[in-house]
Design a binder for these strands. Sequence first.
DNA 1: GATATAAGTGAGTAATCACTCACTTACCAA
DNA 2: TTGGTAAGTGAGTGATTACTCACTTATATC
Lengths: 228, 228
Amino acid sequence: MTEKDWEKWVRMIADEYDLDLGKTNKETLKQKKILEAAIHIFAEKGFSGSSTSEIAERAGVAEATIFKHYRTKKGLLLRLVIPAIAKVASPWITRSALKILEQDKPFRERVEDVILDRVLLIETNWKKIKIILVESLFHPELREAIQTHVAKSVFPVMSEKIKQLQAEGELRRDLPDYVLLRSVISMAIGYLLARNVFPEQLAQSEEKDEISMIAEVLLKGVGGSHGD
Amino acid sequence: MTEKDWEKWVRMIADEYDLDLGKTNKETLKQKKILEAAIHIFAEKGFSGSSTSEIAERAGVAEATIFKHYRTKKGLLLRLVIPAIAKVASPWITRSALKILEQDKPFRERVEDVILDRVLLIETNWKKIKIILVESLFHPELREAIQTHVAKSVFPVMSEKIKQLQAEGELRRDLPDYVLLRSVISMAIGYLLARNVFPEQLAQSEEKDEISMIAEVLLKGVGGSHGD
DNA sequence: GATATAAGTGAGTAATCACTCACTTACCAA
DNA sequence: TTGGTAAGTGAGTGATTACTCACTTATATC
């Protein structure tokens, strides 16, 4: 799937499920309520575990109203998920990270800033991200879309930046760029998981200090004096 | 929840759902087939997305047979999940990692060995782990059980080992032990996720080489010459 | 070989599911 | 004010769901 294929795919799915994707649209109050309720309930119970009647009740709307706007339950899911994926993969969301890395500060501080930025970004969109991650495990079309779209539009940009930082001597040159990229992402995601699942054991300090330590480990490693 | 509370909890759930937990039991061939089919289908479609009729069909068994042995659909889920959690948190599974760390080898090699060991362990039990992780998001009792059990019985052991390695000079002493533990886990999980979701972009080399690079990043960091 | 106990099943059942349809209500432009 | 269109709904529908029960079959012990 190339970038153009992605756009085609979005249009195709949008047609198939009569999605508006929130672009041209002026949404009704009730439509907003439905989307709000759906995010809450899908995140809490998963797609299969949620019922349209429950979503309707929480939104204060007749069940039929949901089907008026989104045709099927899966149409409702995709109306939530596809714009979110498109947003994650849009240029500006990558660009804001690049901007931070280009600021006039010590490299160490820039690394902390960019990690904090991404952590906050994920935290504020946590429910939607949870839905996307979980449902991508069970809906192959979704998984494939994320794979190809994120892989083809986000990674190359980040990869380029890393190569530049390697050339500038900020990052070591004896490891491939994808390993360095994966390491940064791993440490950030690992921190978020730890904070959510084992906060008392694995994330005991203030967020600011935790991120500072993440940057420290990332740049210098965990090895002690013996390894030198 | 203390360790004794955990045992109580297991017995309580076992009573509530009539679980045998595979300890005293001689399982029938059909029971094995049911468990096999359930693992496959729960992993593929999620708990809510799976139907008992489908599980029965795949196992080559009448639907009523499932309810004969496991009383409810959730009873079947717990029969899969609870022994797996108990196993993960059992002493020997932690001990095998500690054994590796105590071998008479350079520290760098021991780190590689232990990462490889855990990666293989997760890979061979991937379906069950997937079920546990996903369903713990939606069943609070499960989440709590994992949290307290793993947190209270696995982390302290690992934490102790890390402090010892810090004292020996193999790991740096200027960061708290939980940050070092979290870093190792993050890098391993990050690698597994990358291998599963973005293999072409984020896990391009042979497993052996990837793990060697993970150990390298972990011990020495990603920072370049500028940072020295 | 008789008997007791457990394993296994076919044919249900009530409840819930996603979804439809005929209909009413709200909105807006001419 | 009117007329056309979209928003919204109450009352359904057939299909599927987890689960039950009366019953048969297999197994093990004496």
